[in-house]
Computed example of a mutant assay.
Amino acid sequence: MALPALTLSLQFARFDGVTEHRAALPRAFVARCLRRALDGDAELTVRIVDAEEGQALNRDYRGRDYATNVLTFDYAQEPLVMADLVLCAPVVAAEAKQMKKPLAEHYAHLLVHGALHAQGWDHETSEADAEAMEARETEVLAALGQPDPYARSRRPRKPG
């Protein structure tokens, strides 16, 4: 099965620590993650930003005054997926550290997550939609050789 065609613009804002994020996000890695998550051809911009820019975008476009890990601005789904994915480097790094996972692994998850949003997937509409999106993310990440990011939350809890 041929993967979808992808036109990719990968951008890094200027911020302290950007070198670590550039190292975790080689262009080929980003393209591979996105192409696996896409069901059709796409033109995507991926921008890695600092907390200030991430917070401003989240506040101005979603009405939420904090920096979040990934924002997806989807412009078209047919005949071509067109979207901007904005990843907030300090948030992604803090989450990766908290989850004790490599930065690149967490970026892979968020790139897939953002690409699914660009195609209309939404985890905030219902529990069923959230479960479907998580299952698709897990499937795509497995194809990339990445672990299931939701494995911890699905483990049965011990009584007591």
Rank of each mutant, 00 (worst) to 15 (best):
L57P: 00
T138V: 11
Q119S: 02
L80A: 04
M133R: 04
Q119T: 03
W121N: 02
A37R: 06
E137H: 04
D122Q: 10
D60P: 01
A128C: 09
H117A: 01
D122A: 15
V81E: 00
L116D: 05
L3M: 12
L116V: 05
T19I: 06
G63T: 03
E53F: 06
A151V: 08
A128T: 08
L87I: 05
Q146W: 03
K97R: 15
D41A: 13
L80Y: 10
T138F: 02
H106F: 13
A2C: 05
P156H: 09
K101R: 15
A128Y: 08
G63Y: 15
L87W: 01
A51W: 02
C88L: 02
A108C: 06
L34Q: 04
C33Y: 09
R155G: 01
T7V: 08
L57Q: 12
R157K: 13
L111V: 12
K100D: 13
T68H: 09
T68Q: 09
T19C: 01
E105F: 00
M99N: 14
Y61P: 00
A151D: 08
A135N: 06
H113I: 13
D50E: 08
A28H: 09
P156R: 10
R155Y: 10
E137I: 13
R157A: 12
D41W: 03
F29D: 06
R35V: 13
T138L: 12
R59S: 13
A76N: 12
A89G: 07
R27T: 09
F15P: 00
V140M: 06
E131S: 07
E52I: 04
M99A: 15
G40L: 03
L3P: 02
E20H: 11
